[in-house]
């Protein structure tokens, strides 16, 4: 594993810088959005009350001081107290994070399990009816708005066919429609990319050589094609995974799913700085961890990347 430690150190340093930058941008942007205190108090609350609450929340201090406190707390894993819920911001986000992970992971597994075989099959049966049908479906999955798909699924699969509940969080049946809706775009993207990546590899010289050697078609696909086509597929899969875990506001709203996407939007409306900061930080962290894992997988798939 020559060069692995510097590779790891370099990636960790970049992850740290990315997290710091994201936190700082969110801190600044949220402060620019305005004062949360008017949203907390009744419209006829006296000025003295506004000043009292502002001081209580530490919003009366100069911005650089607030930023310093924010960074010091962040280093200790303390995201502050939610202005709206009046409890630690991390606890608020944690409650919603479980729902987001449940939905995001299900959508991802459904999407990835279906998309890679579809893309592969399409490539191998290029320009046949099967290929056209699969890519047509992928086009719909990629272009139909989530809002439209969600409501269509509710009307067809819930109201008409009576297979799944219309909305809410509960047993596995509650997961199916939101996961299908959320996963549709991901599934379509991965399927299309898998198809083009596999097609590119299938045209390569070493595949022709393998076939000329008399290697069976199954072995050509399994050993030579898939591994060589894997890098772009892993990249898009990882990126899509991050997106799915970052919260999906529209899907969560359509299906009344209590996830962090909806929490983030509501917290932005409420100007609940600590909750927005915590949500964005955790979403960014997940993204970074996933990218980091992808980098490691790259190194495994193609050792040239690791040493380069």
């Amino acid at each position: 594993m020559r060069g692995f430690l510097p590779f790891l150190g370099h990636r960790l340093f970049r992850a740290f810088i990315a997290l710091w930058l994201v936190s700082t941008v969110v801190f600044v942007v949220m402060r620019l959005s305005g004062d949360p205190v008017p949203l907390l108090l009744p419209p006829d609350a006296p000025r003295s009350e506004i000043f009292r609450v502002r001081a209580e929340l530490g919003l009366d201090r100069p911005l650089p001081v607030q930023y310093g406190v924010f960074l010091a707390n962040l280093a200790r894993g303390d995201f502050g107290r939610s202005i709206h819920f009046r409890e630690p911001a991390f606890n608020v986000v944690r409650d919603y994070l479980a729902a987001t992970l449940e939905l995001g992971l299900t959508a991802f597994v459904l999407a990835a399990l279906a998309a890679v075989p579809i893309g592969l099959f399409s490539a191998m049966r290029r320009n046949t009816a099967v290929d056209h049908a699969a890519m047509g479906l992928a086009l719909i999955g990629q272009s139909a708005p989530t809002f439209f798909l969600g409501i269509l699924f509710i009307l067809l699969l819930s109201l008409k066919a009576d297979l799944f509940p219309t909305s809410g969080r509960g047993d596995w049946r509650h997961l199916v429609l939101p996961a299908l809706t959320l996963g549709a775009f991901t599934m379509a993207s991965i399927a299309r990319l898998t198809r083009s990546a596999v097609l590119e590899v299938l045209g390569a010289d070493y595949i022709r050589t393998a076939r000329a050697k008399g290697v069976s078609e199954t072995w050509v696909v399994a050993k030579h094609t898939l591994k060589n086509a894997a890098i772009p597929i892993v990249t898009i899969t990882g990126l899509q995974f991050g997106t799915l875990l970052g919260g999906a506001v529209v899907t969560e709203t359509v299906f009344s799913w209590p996830g962090i996407g909806r929490l983030a939007i509501q917290s932005i409306y409420n100007r609940d700085y600590p909750v927005v900061q915590c949500t964005v930080f955790l979403a960014a962290l997940m993204f970074i961890v996933i990218n980091f894992c992808i980098d490691l997988i790259y190194g495994f798939l193609d050792p040239r990347i690791r040493s380069g």
Partner: peptide, 18 residues
């Protein structure tokens, strides 16, 4: 009491008897 913020799913949940 459940929040169903979107109108279409809210009405669908009533029509379906949920």
């Amino acid at each position: 009491m459940r929040p169903i913020p979107e109108m279409a799913p809210r009405i669908a949940s009533l029509l379906k008897g949920e």
